[in-house]
Every structure is written in C-alpha cells, then in structure tokens.
Design a binder for these strands. Structure first.
Lengths: 121, 121
DNA sequence: CGGAATCCATCGGGATACTG
DNA sequence: CAGTATCCCGATGGATTCCG
C-alpha cells in the first residue's frame, strides 16, 4: 500500500513557532529589549546593519504576535518605547537553549561544511 | 555620547543556528528521519506538499551542515537512504522544546493576532 | 523622532520536463 | 528511483524620499 503524507506544515506546531522567531532580525530585536524598554531610535543604533524598514516591519510582526508591547508617548518630539510582553519573555529560555547549542556545535557544523565543500567544489 | 551597535547578525550564534533549522521544510525533513533511516521517495510521500526540488535542496543543506547522512546504494534501481547524524540528533531536544512552547502558547499568539488585526483592519 | 510609501534588485520556491 | 535543469512568479529586503 502507498504511504500517505503524515507530516504537514500546517499541523507542525514547531513550524509555527519558527515563523514567529526565525525572521532575519527578530532575534536581534528581542535581544535589544531583553534588558528593558527601549526606544525605536536606540534599537536602530544598537542593531548593526538593520534598516528602518526592516526594524519597523520586524517590530510590527512581533507586536502582532503578542511578543512585544508598543507604548507611544505623543509628545513633541514623539517617543515610542518597545518592551517584551510576558509572552515574549517566555521565549527567552528557548533562545538561550538554542544559543548554547550553537556555541557547543557550531564548530562541528563549520567543519562539516568545509568537508562537504571540498568534496564538491 | 552616541550609542554604538552592539548587537550584530554575524556575532549572534543564535542567528546561525536558525539559519540551519529555520528553513521552510527543514524541520519536517528532520521529523521524517526521527525514527530511523528513510528513503528519498518515502520522504516525498510522507511530507505533505513538498516538491522534489525543495526536498533535494533541503537535504543537501542538511548534509552540508553535518545534520544528515546520505547513504547511496548504487543498485538498479538505485537506493538512497537519509538518516540523522549524532549532530542532527542533538538538535531533537531543542526542537521538542520549541514544540512544547508552541503547544502552550500558540493560542495566546493567535488571540493576540486577532486583537491586533481587529484594531487595524 | 518615528515612522509610511515608493521603487527596484534579488531570491526563494513551485511546476514542468529530462537523465543516469 | 533519485535526482538535475529551466522557466517563471511572488515575496523579501535595501535605498531613498516624504509625513505627523
């Protein structure tokens, strides 16, 4: 008998988390908020190489997913502060775990890549 | 004094892990190998909606990063089996942790999204 | 200051067809 | 069976300009 598909993107909760935290700048934005509220402009300055388009877009997604809070103070000039929600903070341990894995194994990965690239140049 | 960038993509080991495991089909491919070696054709059938182009590409990346092993048996017809390396298996606990987080919090995320989308339609 | 809007180059990824 | 090769389109992301 033929095998039926039993692994699907839609059903994979793991994939759904990844959608939230795996965009290019998402992790860095979260790091910037790790120590407390931070303003838009300071995030721009702290995250190397990000454009405001990408920062704005990243923060919007995070806000939409309930990961960050946006607090607008309509003064002149206006002030906007971003901070992690409790939901956002609950992600930090997972990110730390991934970070530890990376620190432990990234050398192995790089070695594997060199090996692979040498065989097929 | 002006703030200097202190958060960078290049320095962030977390980002480097994500590059490895956050592609659209990567997680599903790893799941397919979780219970042991599996052939190319059976992966195609088990993973819903994947094209052979994407399966091939995904497996190549994983092989390059030392996550999977490729064992080619040049018979007629040829047989190719894919399996997780020890490095690959060391990723499973992390994926499980993310999965658990998702199961616990994905409802909150969906709710946050509905809330957000209602405010800004 | 904190964005939004626009333009444009690049790239991921699907469909299809062909090969060892 | 297990891929490779092409074509093609929509999404991603950078640079720039404008607005409250």
């Amino acid at each position: 008998m033929g095998t039926k598909p039993d692994i699907s993107l839609e059903a994979c909760t793991y994939s759904h988390v990844l959608e939230i935290i795996s965009n290019k700048w998402t992790a860095l934005a979260i790091y910037a908020m790790e120590t407390g509220p931070i303003r838009y402009g300071e995030m721009m300055r702290r995250i190397e190489g990000i454009s405001q388009k990408m920062l704005t877009q990243t923060l919007k997604q995070l806000e939409r997913n309930g990961i960050v809070n946006r607090k607008l103070t309509p003064s002149v000039p206006p002030t906007t502060e971003y901070s992690l929600t409790p939901l956002g903070e609950s992600l930090l341990p997972l990110m730390t775990a991934l970070k530890l894995w990376a620190e432990d194994h990234l050398d192995s990965v790089k070695q594997a890549r060199m090996h692979y690239d040498n065989l097929k140049p």
